[in-house]
């Protein structure tokens, strides 16, 4: 599969090759544009010539077998790969008209706009309240105490956690259950009011009920945010995602509307993966 091949093959979806036009469909505003993205860990190439458009206020799921590069790709979007010294990146990741890998781009500013939720919940060793209030305060999003309280409440409500924790805001974030901790991390991410939220297998460490709660939450959150999620679980992708990209050995094999992808995959590999032949 070469990079010239169309990455979307359904008429509703915009083709990578064609510049996107704003009027076509409201929910298809471009959020992040990726062109010819290559990534190496030392000498081994982990991402090979990726091209993909991610759309605003949609959930895009990245699926594929382990080690296919989907998490690595996700971490390119907020430059978390910078933390690994041996990583080398080439290609374009464009957001808001700017190349996020360019020298003048401040990765801190980028992460302020592209939030992230991790595989394992990682609340800070602070109170529930502080877990959420900390970042907005540092970003000068709130100045008065009352605003801060309001923001914490709103974030917790948006994350569907408010009713469970409103009476124990001063308790440590680590005292919550796993699913609650993960929603706390989501609340923490949305309190900063980012444009995009990246989720790296957000439910893989959770029980089925917490997983369902978080899937519902993603559905609600896409009204405000662009969500890109990595998942191992194809049913989850089918349930929550508007678009799905199938990764294999560092390449995007197929990228399409989720329904189309799961009903009539264009590629043989996709079909094999979806039908459980490997993965």
């Amino acid at each position: 599969m070469n990079s010239q091949a169309p990455v979307m093959n359904q008429q509703h979806a915009p083709d990578v090759g064609q510049p996107y036009t704003r009027n076509e469909q409201a929910c298809h505003d471009l959020s992040i544009r990726v062109r010819d993205l290559n990534l190496w860990y030392g000498k081994s190439q982990a991402l090979k010539g990726l091209n993909i458009d991610l759309f605003q206020k949609n959930v895009t799921a990245l699926i594929g077998p382990s080690g296919c590069g989907k998490s690595t790709f996700l971490r390119c979007l907020n430059r978390m790969n910078d933390l690994i010294p041996s990583v080398h990146i080439e290609g374009l990741v464009e957001m808001d008209g700017q190349d996020v890998n360019a020298g003048k781009m401040d990765e801190v500013a980028l992460r302020r706009r592209v939030g992230m939720v991790f595989q394992k919940p990682n609340p800070f060793p602070k109170s529930i309240y502080e877990n959420i209030a900390y970042a907005p305060r540092m970003h000068d999003l709130v100045s008065r105490k009352a605003d801060q309280d309001e923001l914490v409440e709103k974030a917790l409500r948006d994350a569907g956690l408010w009713n469970e924790v409103k009476d124990k805001l001063q308790e440590p974030g680590t005292s919550l259950s796993g699913g609650q901790q993960q929603r706390l991390c989501i609340a923490r991410a949305i309190a900063v009011q980012p444009d995009v939220i990246l989720m790296d297998e957000p439910t893989s460490a959770l029980d089925p009920i917490s997983t369902a709660t978080i899937e519902d939450l993603m559905d609600k959150l896409k009204e405000q945010f662009t969500i890109v999620t990595v998942t191992h679980n194809m049913q989850q992708a089918a349930r929550v995602a508007d678009y799905t990209a199938f990764f294999h050995l560092g390449e995007i094999i197929e990228y399409n509307d989720t329904k189309v992808m799961f009903s009539t995959p264009a590629q043989k590999k996709t079909e094999d993966y979806i039908s459980g032949r490997y993965g």
């Binding site: 978390m80 801190v108 939030g115 992230m116 991790f118 900390y134 970042a135 540092m138 991390c185 923490r188």
Partner: peptide, 22 residues
Amino acid sequence: PDSMRQGSLALGMTKGETIRDV
């Protein structure tokens, strides 16, 4: 754990803030 640092950096905190506050 590194996940603490990443959690903070992913919120748009600088390295110094991450060290000091997390």
